[in-house]
Simulated assay, not measured.
Amino acid sequence: MNKTDLRSYGLTPFFEQEAASYKGLFIARVCEQHRNLYRVVCENGEILAVVSGKLAHEANDSTGFPAVGDWVMIDRIEDSSGNAVIHHVLRRKSVFTRKAAGTSHERQVVAANIDLVFICMALNADFNLRRLERYLSIAWDSMATPVIVLTKADLCADLETKLAQVSTVSVGTDVVVCSCMKDNGYQSILPYIERGKTIAFIGSSGVGKSTLINRLMGKEVLDTKEIRSNGKGRHTTTHRQLLLLPNGGIVIDTPGMRELQLDSANLSRSFEDIEALARKCKYRDCSHTTEPGCAVRSAIEAGELAEERLESYLKLQKEIGYEGLNYRQLEQEKIKRMFGSMGEMKQAKRFVKKKNQKR
Rank of each mutant, 00 (worst) to 15 (best):
T237A: 13
E307V: 12
T97F: 02
S62Y: 08
D263A: 10
S298K: 14
S287M: 14
I213S: 00
F201C: 09
R195D: 15
I86F: 08
D174W: 01
R269D: 15
L216A: 04
H87F: 15
A112V: 10
Y327H: 11
S170M: 03
N128P: 02
V176I: 14
R309F: 06
V110T: 09
E160L: 09
V166S: 04
V171T: 13
S298A: 15
V207S: 00
R91F: 06
E301P: 00
R98F: 10
Q33K: 14
G69N: 05
T198K: 02
I114T: 11
T198Q: 05
H239A: 12
V117L: 01
A265Y: 03
T4Y: 02
E32H: 07
A28M: 07
P66Q: 08
A200L: 04
K355D: 12
K354Q: 14
V117C: 08
I252M: 09
L6D: 08
S167K: 14
R7A: 07
G172H: 10
T237H: 06
G185D: 08
D70P: 07
G303L: 10
S312D: 09
N128L: 02
I86H: 04
L216P: 03
L314E: 10
Q347L: 13
Y192V: 08
M338R: 14
R35S: 12
V40L: 10
L245N: 04
G185E: 08
A265S: 07
S268T: 11
Q33L: 11
A144R: 02
T103S: 11
N266A: 15
S264M: 07
P255T: 10
K54M: 12
F26G: 03
R328S: 13
H87L: 06
E18G: 06
V109W: 03
E333Y: 10
G82L: 11
L155A: 08
E331K: 11
K54V: 15
E307C: 01
R7Q: 11
G303E: 12
L136A: 01
Y22D: 03
E78S: 13
K225W: 00
E304V: 05
H57M: 09
Q347C: 06
L25M: 12
T237Y: 09
T63D: 04
R350L: 14
D263K: 00
C156F: 10
E133H: 03
